[in-house]
Simulated scan of single mutants.
Amino acid sequence: MRTYAECAGRIVTVSPSDQAEVERLLGIPAQQITVIGNGVDTTRFAPQQLTTGQKLALLRRWLVEDPQGWAPGKPPGSIRYTDADLSTMLTPDGSLAPIVLWIGRFQHVKRLALLLEAFAAICKSLSPAPILLLWGGYPGENEGEHPADTVHRLDLDQRVYLIGWRGHEELPAGLACADLMAAPAVNESFGMVYIEAAACGVPPIATNTGGPATLITHNGPDADGWLVRPDDMDDLTAALGVALTDPSERARRAANGLQRVRRSCAWARVADQYLQLYYEQAHP
C-alpha cells in the first residue's frame, strides 16, 4: 500500500474518516488527498409510492414464495414464512405497521445484535409495534450469535423477518417497502446503504462514526437522518422511538436527504469531480 501510494500523484478517499486513516497509516500529507464520496444511481434508487397490497406482494415473494433467509448451519431458504406470519404485519385497520429495514452482513461491526436489542425495547412501548426486515446476511457467514437465535431469544419472531441475501437490483424495491432504514454499524468507511436509502426517500439511522458521520445531518433545518452514539442501546432506542412515532419528521428528513443525494451523490456529480481532479493533475 505504501509503495502504491508513493507512486500516486493524488490519493482519493471516499470520506474524511478514510482520509485521516490514510494520513495515519501511510504517512500521506493531507494536501495530497482528495475526498470524493461514492455515487448512487438515482434513476434506479428513487422514491416509489407503493400501495399496501404492492408491498405485501413483494414481502410475500421474498418471505413465502422464494425465501432466502437461512438458519444457523443451514442453506438459504431454510427460514420460511407463511401467509399467517405476514398477517402479523397488519394493524387492525388493515394497514401495514411501520417497517424498519436493516441492510448488511451478519458481522459484528454491523452491530445487528445491538439493533435487535433496541428494537425489542421499542416494540414494548409502541402500538402498533413496528416490523423489522433483515435484508442480507451472506449465506454461511456469521459472527457471534446468529440473528435468528437472537430474534427467538428476544421473543421477536412475529416482529422480525429474515429476508436473506438478495440481488442488489432488488434493493430499491426493498427500500420502497420501508418507512425507516436503521443500520448502527461502527466506523463504516463510507456506507452506501445510507445514500441508497436517502435516494429512495427513506431516512436512515446510523452511528456518528466513520463515513455516515459526514454523510448524514442529524439536527437543524437540513436534517436528513439520525445519528446515534456507537454501541449505545439507549440512544439507538430513543432514535427509533422518535423516528417511528413522528411521520411528519420522517417525511421532512426524507425530503432533505433526497434533495442532498440528487445534488451531491448522483453519479453525474461524482464523475464531474473526478474529471476536474484529472484535469488539475494534467494541468498543474
Rank of each mutant, 00 (worst) to 15 (best):
I131D: 11
Y274L: 01
L96N: 07
A176R: 14
G137M: 01
P67G: 09
I205P: 15
D149W: 04
V228S: 08
A176E: 10
G77P: 07
D155Q: 13
H152C: 08
W135R: 05
L59Q: 04
Y194K: 09
E188L: 06
L115W: 01
T82F: 01
V64Q: 02
G104V: 08
A268R: 15
G191V: 13
M181W: 13
E170H: 08
G201L: 02
E143A: 00
E280R: 13
P184T: 11
W70H: 07
V242K: 13
D272F: 09
N187T: 12
V100F: 06
W226H: 00
Y161E: 06
I131C: 02
H218L: 00
P76M: 05
M1C: 06
M1Q: 06
L175I: 06
A266D: 15
A251H: 14
M233Y: 08
I103V: 15
R166V: 01
L90I: 01
T217L: 01
A176C: 06
G241W: 06
L90Y: 06
A199N: 13
P284L: 04
Q259P: 08
T82S: 12
A178G: 12
R44K: 15
G69H: 09
R111W: 12
W267G: 09
K55E: 12
L63E: 12
V12R: 03
W102R: 07
S95I: 05
A8N: 00
E141P: 03
D66H: 11
G140L: 05
L227A: 08
G140E: 06
A113W: 07
A183W: 10
T13Q: 07
H152F: 07
G137V: 01
E21Q: 04
N219V: 05
V193L: 14
W226V: 00
D179R: 09
V242N: 10
T3M: 07
I163R: 04
N38D: 15
G167V: 02
A198I: 10
S264R: 15
T217V: 13
T51A: 02
N38E: 14
R2C: 10
Q31M: 04
H146C: 00
L132A: 10
I11L: 02
E280P: 07
L258M: 01
P139C: 05
L275C: 10
A5K: 02
V160L: 03
I33D: 14
E169M: 06
P221G: 07
G69Q: 09
L215A: 03
I33F: 00
R263M: 14
R229E: 14
T150C: 04
